[in-house]
């Protein structure tokens, strides 16, 4: 951890807190029916996105999943535009057309969340091709879940990226559950990282509850990709604290598993305690930071509440033009 500056550690803690608090708030507003449709909270997995995105430069790309808010925030997405999108407002990232699963930000190199499990995997091949053709040393992180690792696209994408030595970092967020299907029962070999061997690319596991471990693992893969060596596969061992969505009580999990994870592998709690112990930050400073974040989320909610609905006429006009 020597080379990770104090400022960077504080930034990591801040981003993790941002995602945790933002997600908690979205669940609240989902329960109040301000947000509807599907919502897939990232609570518990924050260290994966934050550790990974901290290893990127601004111009690098990411491509995300249905559980994508954390990735977007880690890459620097705007709270206002995110919340407004979740509220279905015209000022949202997608003008109210996309909702939770389709947030994208071209300026941040955020190529979009995805409603299809594994949908982003083939697209990462294309972004990788363009990074390679461009020769500017850009890379792309492709986030996907343990469910997607069992989909055929996983093979096509990793094979083609490996064949062409594309600068793609494949991060499998293994949170153990694809909706209700447990990875222990669905991943043959029970080792997603080991599948890298078949493609002749580096593959390793990283503790997804430890932001520093994630950062170091991803930094290594980013460096490898920037040097033109091709893709890597990182299996982030993480855990979804909540159910698949806010109304899922997650009864398919063994008793005590979630409680144990929350108690022992809470990336926010553990990292905060560590930074206090290491005297990187004080409890008071953390409280200040948290208050600041809450204020920004309050502002985002206010912005979303006060934003206009999309205009039906404008929408229909667009439909007519695109016949």
């Amino acid at each position: 951890m020597g080379k990770i500056s104090k400022e960077m550690q504080i930034e990591m803690l801040k981003k993790i807190t941002e995602i945790r608090r933002f997600e908690e708030r979205t669940v609240q507003y989902y329960q109040k029916s301000k947000i509807w449709g599907y919502l897939h909270p990232y609570i518990g997995e924050e260290a994966v996105a934050v550790g990974a995105c901290m290893a990127l430069k601004k111009e690098d790309y990411i491509i995300s999943t249905h559980r994508g808010h954390g990735h977007a925030i880690a890459k620097g997405a705007d709270f206002n535009k995110m919340m407004a999108e979740l509220f279905g407002k015209s000022t949202g990232y997608c003008k109210g057309r996309g909702g939770s699963m389709h947030i994208a930000d071209t300026e941040l190199g955020m190529l979009g969340a995805n409603g299809i499990v594994g949908g982003g995997l083939p697209i990462s091949v294309g972004a990788g091709l363009s990074c390679k053709m461009e020769k500017k040393g850009r890379v792309i992180i492709c986030f996907f879940g343990d469910g997607a690792a069992n989909n055929g696209v996983f093979h096509e994408a990793l094979n083609m990226s490996a064949v062409f030595k594309l600068p793609v970092i494949y991060i499998c967020e293994n949170n153990l559950y694809a909706i209700s299907m447990c990875a222990r029962e669905s991943v043959a070999g029970n080792d997603i990282a080991a599948r890298a061997k078949g493609y002749g690319i580096p593959g390793y596991k990283a503790d997804g509850s430890d932001v520093i471990a994630m950062y170091e693992a991803v930094e290594k893969a980013v460096d490898y990709a920037r040097k033109g060596n091709g893709p890597s596969l990182i299996e982030a061992e993480t855990y979804r604290f909540l159910g698949h969505h806010p109304n899922d009580p997650a009864l398919y999990r063994p008793k005590g598993e979630a409680e144990d994870e929350k108690k022992n592998r809470d990336c926010l709690k553990n990292f905060k305690e560590k930074l206090i112990e290491d005297k990187v930050i004080t409890e008071e400073q953390f409280s200040e930071m948290e208050k600041e974040i809450e204020k920004r989320i309050d502002a985002a909610v206010e912005f979303a509440e006060n934003s206009p609905e999309p205009e039906l006429d404008k929408f229909l006009e667009r439909v007519a033009i695109n016949q």
Partner: peptide, 22 residues
């Protein structure tokens, strides 16, 4: 770009490249 027989990766390859300026 001569690709493997991977229709999803070919079209995803096109989409991803198109999203990033090609």
């Amino acid at each position: 770009v001569n690709t493997p027989i991977s229709e999803q990766a070919i079209l995803g390859g096109a989409i991803g490249a198109a999203l990033t300026g090609y």
